[in-house]
Design a binder for these strands. Sequence first.
DNA 1: GTTTTGCATTATGAATGCAAAATGCAAGTG
DNA 2: CACTTGCATTTTGCATTCATAATGCAAAAC
Lengths: 226, 226
Amino acid sequence: MTATAAIARRSLHGELVALIRDLIVDGELSPGTKIPEQALCERFEVSRTPLREALKVLAAEGIVTLHPNRGASVSTITAEQVAELFPIMGALEALAGELACARITDRDIARIRRMHDDMLAHYRKGARGPYTRLNQAIHNALFEIAGNGALQQMYNSLMLRIHAIRFLARKSPERWREAIDDHEEIMTALAARDGSRLARILKQHLEHKAAMVREALVARRTQIAP
Amino acid sequence: MTATAAIARRSLHGELVALIRDLIVDGELSPGTKIPEQALCERFEVSRTPLREALKVLAAEGIVTLHPNRGASVSTITAEQVAELFPIMGALEALAGELACARITDRDIARIRRMHDDMLAHYRKGARGPYTRLNQAIHNALFEIAGNGALQQMYNSLMLRIHAIRFLARKSPERWREAIDDHEEIMTALAARDGSRLARILKQHLEHKAAMVREALVARRTQIAP
DNA sequence: GTTTTGCATTATGAATGCAAAATGCAAGTG
DNA sequence: CACTTGCATTTTGCATTCATAATGCAAAAC
């Protein structure tokens, strides 16, 4: 025999990393929340050692912050950090678009076109939830088609870090319209397999997203401190 | 008083992360080397718990690979991974260049020009070591001027991951000449504060680097299996 | 009434202990 | 002689334990 499929090696701390990450993604642990070790130990029925290892890993990923001798908490994000991360995501998406254009099949184009049309339908209905889901699906599909695993991983990691802003992603109608326009252009460039154009559009699309978040942050600030 | 400087909080595992990372960077632990916990515990005079935590973090960073139940080893890198990482580094450098152009001062330009000239002098003398050092210093300076901490961190992290190829970075004279030409163009675009042009050149520069590494890898392969 | 100080409680950091898995080696088998 | 098989040793994963720093609260001082 030539290649035996390596049996799945499990490690408790690895499971915990995934588990806690899900907890954060699903919003059960919201940004800023303290993470008491003991409580999670009881919840998952493990001892503190693997749990602590998991927290260290999540801290390295940036979604958990460790306060030496004072425990861990779910990372919060500042406007400054958002301002730093969005351009990076823009650069990565641009690269993904470029790579995707070089590899995309007609079948893939048709598939994304379907998602795009679905998304438009939800936009017209004003259905934010399904719209967002399809929006993300399209962006994910781009990364998959790009076929660069490391790139996809880095992007996902960044998405996780800015996850904290999800709850304030209340686009204004103008910004939403803008996003739709961007997506139309994305579809066109993708169908034409015009990599450099798609890259440019995606970068700009992310700049628009960043502007949207900035507006939301400002709105929120004024709301909190009247 | 308004702002007391928070006293430096130390954590053993944090120290160990830095320490082991240095060991790897300095080449004391070369890629593929197994990392026996006990040996390092004795070397650093710590117990296994913090050391294991440190290894988990380094694994999350990608420079250490964990083999469940079989210990850890310094990550090796395949040609495929190099092919995935270089385009990402290209995208990040391009972004750094663009941001740097928007913020660079005349003083900074003069400083980089000096480094550039020094580097050229070393090139003419054929001094690879000092050349490489200045080359890296220039790229680092670009990231610093760009002023995006997250970007710099991600780039450094990637540099660490491809660190394994450092020993085979034997440029052919043609490739070296090519790199010099790239750097001349980089200086020109930087002095003109032409962000998009600098971005394009940096991306291309990284493509050249990738090609160089690919050649070195091929050469090495044929050398090993004659 | 507000602030400060001391102590008890709790939580975190690190070390040790124990069970399970992997490794190495020698003896056995074809 | 090559290849497996069984056992002793080593290594790793996790639980538990011990030490230390932080937190909360009540009493004392201003």
